[in-house]
Structure formats: C-alpha cells, structure tokens
Simulated scan of single mutants.
Amino acid sequence: MALRPISGETLADAAYRRISEAMLTGGLEPGARLVMDTLAAQLEISRTPVRDALHRLEREGLIEPAGRRGFVVRRLGPAEIHHLYEIRMAVEVFAAGRVAELGSEAVSHVADAIRKAEVMGLSEPAEAFAANRLVHRAVVEATGNPLLVDLFDGIWTRATALQVYSGYFQRELVHRPIRELHQPMLEALAAGPERAVEVMRHHIQEGLEATLE
C-alpha cells in the first residue's frame, strides 16, 4: 500500500502514527512485511525516523524482526487483547463511578464530548477511533485526576490499541452513531455510581467480545 508523505511534524512520531494508522485501517494487515527503504520512500523521509518508528512498534509488540527483510506485522493473540481490555476496565470503570459521584458538572463534560464526537467524520476506522476516544477520554477527564488521564492516554495512544480495536471499529463504529453507542453510558453517569460502574463495565465488555469475534 502507499503511505501519505509527511510534512510539518516530528518525523519519527509522524512515521509511527502513519504506520499505526495503516494498521488500523487494514492497509497493513497481520503478516504484512515492513521494509525500511520502502517505507522511507513512501513517506518521503530518511531511513532514520522510519527506523525509530519501527523500533517503537517492535517494543510495543506490534511487529517482529523478519531477518534482512525488515519486520512483519504481528497478529495479536486473545491473551494480549484481554490484557488491554483489563487495563481499560480498571481505569474507565473507576472513572465512571467517580464521575457519577461528582455529579452534574462532570456528567455535562461527557455530554459535551458526545456532541462534539457526533459531528466528527465516521466514514473511516481512524475517524471512528478518534471520535470514540474523545468520548471515553472525557469520562476520565471529568474525574479531575490528571494521573488517571495519563493512564488512559498510555493505553489509547499505543499502536497496540489501534490494532486491537481495528476490527471492532470497521464492523461497529463506522455503522452506528456515536450517540447510540454512548447514550446509555451518559444516562448511567447521571443515575449514580453503582449504575455508572455497571454500564461502563458492560460497555467495555461488549467491545472485548466484538473484538474477539
């Protein structure tokens, strides 16, 4: 596949993001080979930032060496997918309960995020990913705990998350409105901590099951 050229960004980070996006959209499927010279030519940058991006992806377990032929995109197993969702459960379920405890102002922050996400494009998996992330990040932001937000970002900005969620986004999010997916969660936040925890846990569990299909 052809990757879009990079301009106006930190090259190593931009190369990482471009390659990650290709994994999300299906342009780079498990088993695809990544050759440094080819990627550098497609991105119109030197080999060095591409090498840095590939090593970062390797550290995250998304790709593995393939001898002199560069790297190959790994297929994540069920255990790795479960691990990612377990961490999401720990962070986001706690956040949902805390937002419900804080009350209407915190819940309004999430409602605002849903309204913003509704006007974002959803025709591509990468767009659906961004809209969904906006809503879920708003729940964590509304707790007022910056360390919790850092944990959330550490989960959702990993290329691992992109690959894990890619199939789910292509099947679900590009076909279902953001409000339809998240209105039950918003109502649960307003209903109180117990209900908020229950619905957020169910919401994330549904995502796990859909991802494993």
Results as ranks from 00 to 15, higher is better:
Q183K: 06
L186D: 08
L39N: 04
R59G: 07
T25V: 12
S166A: 15
R59E: 14
R74I: 04
G192C: 08
L181A: 13
A15S: 10
H82T: 12
F71Q: 03
R74Y: 00
R115K: 13
A159F: 00
G207Q: 04
L122F: 03
V72C: 13
V139R: 05
M89H: 12
F152N: 02
M200V: 09
G27Q: 11
F94V: 10
A32M: 08
E92D: 05
E206Q: 15
P65K: 07
A142K: 00
L3S: 10
Q163P: 05
L134G: 04
L162P: 04
L186Y: 03
L212F: 06
Y165C: 12
Q163F: 10
S46K: 14
L212D: 01
R98F: 00
L173W: 15
T10Y: 14
L147Q: 14
R69K: 12
P146E: 10
A90P: 03
M120R: 06
A188I: 03
A41Y: 04
S166M: 02
G77Q: 07
L34E: 05
P125C: 03
A12G: 03
A130T: 10
H202F: 06
A190G: 11
M23C: 13
A66P: 00
A142V: 10
A126F: 08
Y16V: 00
E80P: 00
L151N: 00
